[in-house]
C-alpha cells in the first residue's frame, strides 16, 4: 500500500476517534440532546472501506454513523452541529446523531431502523447500473441487521441484478445487549453470502490495512461490473450501545481483549514501525486533528438553534 493512503487513513481514523471522544464529553456537559451511538473502536472499517471510494461513490449509514460520514469526507463541524441540534448542521437540526447525511460527498444518509439501509443501497446500485456510470455503493450495517428480512431481500436483489454494491457487515458481536451466539447458529455472517451466490469475505475489522485490502477487491469487482460482495468485518464497540449503556452484559476479559486490539493504536504502531511517517509529523498530525475537532465544537456551539417554525418546513419537496 502506498504511504500517502496509509497516512491519510490514520488521519481519518484519528479524526473519528477524537470526534467521538469529544461527543462523549459534550454529552456529559448536557450539550447533546437525545442519545448517541459511538463508533469508537470500529474506525478501521469505515476508513478502510471509504479509502477505496471516490467522492461520487455512495455510502448508506446507520444509527452508529458518525464514523462513516467522516470517512466518506463529510465535514466535522457540520456533523457536530447536527449532533447538537443546530441549524448549521447537515440536516438543519432535523436529523441529529442518528441521521447524518451529506449528499454532496455521497453520504446518502443514516437510517436508524436497523437493516433499513440495505435495500436503499441496493437501489443506489440499481440507479448506477441504469444510469451507466462506474460508481459503487457501500452499505454499512451491523450483525443485528443481518437478521432482518431486508438483508435477505436486498442482497439477493443486488446479486440477481449484478449491482455494484459492497455490503459491509460491521460485526461488533452485540445487537444492543444480545450476543451474536444467542441469535444465530453461525460464527461468520460472511457465510450467508453463499445463499445469494456472491462472495462472502471475512476480515479483521480492527486492522485498517486488512479492511482496505478486502474492500479494494470488492470495490474493484463492483466497479468492473462483476457484482456485489458481502464483507464481514469483525470488530467491537469500545463503549456501550448508546450513551446510558454501561454494557455490563459483556465479560470484562472480552472487553479487555478487544481494547488491546484497538484499531487506531494498531495502525499508528504499524506506521511507526514501517517508518511510513516520522514521529514529528505524526505528532503534528495529532495536534492538527485535535484542533480540527475543537474547531468543529466551536462551530457547532456557536451555531444557532433552528427557529421553532422550521419544524413545519421541508416536509414536502
Amino acid at each position: 500500500m502506498d504511504s500517502d493512503t496509509l497516512v491519510l487513513m490514520y488521519r481519518k481514523m484519528l479524526e473519528i476517534r477524537l470526534f467521538e471522544d469529544k461527543v462523549f464529553e459534550l454529552y456529559g456537559q448536557n450539550l447533546v440532546p437525545g442519545t448517541i451511538h459511538l463508533y469508537t473502536g470500529e474506525e478501521a472499517i469505515a476508513v478502510g472501506v471509504c479509502a477505496n471510494l471516490r467522492k461520487e461513490d455512495y455510502i448508506v449509514s446507520t444509527h452508529r454513523g458518525h464514523g462513516h460520514c467522516i470517512a466518506k469526507g463529510a465535514r466535522l463541524d457540520r456533523i457536530m452541529a447536527e449532533i447538537l441540534g443546530r441549524k448549521t448542521g447537515y440536516c438543519k437540526g432535523k436529523g441529529g446523531s442518528m441521521h447524518i447525511a451529506d449528499f454532496s460527498v455521497g453520504v446518502l444518509g443514516a437510517t436508524a431502523v436497523v437493516g433499513a439501509g440495505i435495500p436503499i443501497a441496493t437501489g443506489a446500485g440499481l440507479s448506477i447500473k441504469l444510469r451507466g456510470t462506474d460508481q459503487v455503493a457501500a452499505c454499512f450495517f451491523g450483525d443485528g441487521a443481518s437478521n432482518q428480512g431486508t438483508f435477505h431481500e436486498a442482497i439477493n436483489m443486488a446479486a440477481i441484478w449484478n449491482l455494484p454494491v459492497l455490503f459491509v457487515c460491521e460485526n461488533n458481536l452485540y445487537a444492543m445487549g444480545t450476543h451474536q451466539a444467542r441469535v444465530m447458529l453461525i460464527d461468520d455472517i460472511a457465510e450467508r453470502a453463499a445463499a445469494y451466490g456472491i462472495p462472502g469475505v471475512l476480515t479483521d475489522g480492527n486492522d485498517a490495512i486488512a479492511v482496505y485490502k478486502a474492500a479494494e477487491k470488492a470495490v474493484e469487482r463492483a466497479r468492473g461490473g462483476r457484482g456485489p460482495t458481502l464483507l464481514e468485518c469483525k470488530t467491537y464497540r469500545q463503549k456501550g450501545h448508546s450513551r446510558f449503556d454501561p454494557a455490563t452484559y459483556r465479560p470484562k476479559e472480552e472487553v479487555e481483549e478487544w481494547l488491546s486490539k484497538d484499531p487506531v493504536r494498531r495502525l499508528r504502531k504499524q506506521l511507526r514501525e514501517a517508518g511510513t511517517i516520522s514521529d514529528d509529523k505524526l505528532a503534528q498530525m495529532e495536534r492538527d486533528v485535535a484542533e480540527a475537532v475543537e474547531a468543529a465544537v466551536t462551530f457547532a456551539v456557536d451555531g444557532p438553534h433552528p427557529a421553532p417554525r422550521e419544524a413545519l418546513e421541508d416536509i414536502y419537496a
Binding site: 455512495y58 446518502l108 435495500p119 436503499i120 441496493t122 437501489g123 443506489a124 440507479s127 441504469l130 431481500e153
Partner: peptide, 21 residues
C-alpha cells in the same frame, strides 16, 4: 421483474429515487 420482496422493492426504489432516477 423483481423477486417477491416487497420491502426491497420499495427500498430499492427509494435508493434509486435519491440517486437520480
Amino acid at each position: 421483474d423483481t423477486p417477491i420482496s416487497e420491502s426491497a422493492i420499495i427500498g430499492t426504489a427509494v435508493g434509486a429515487a435519491i440517486t437520480g432516477m
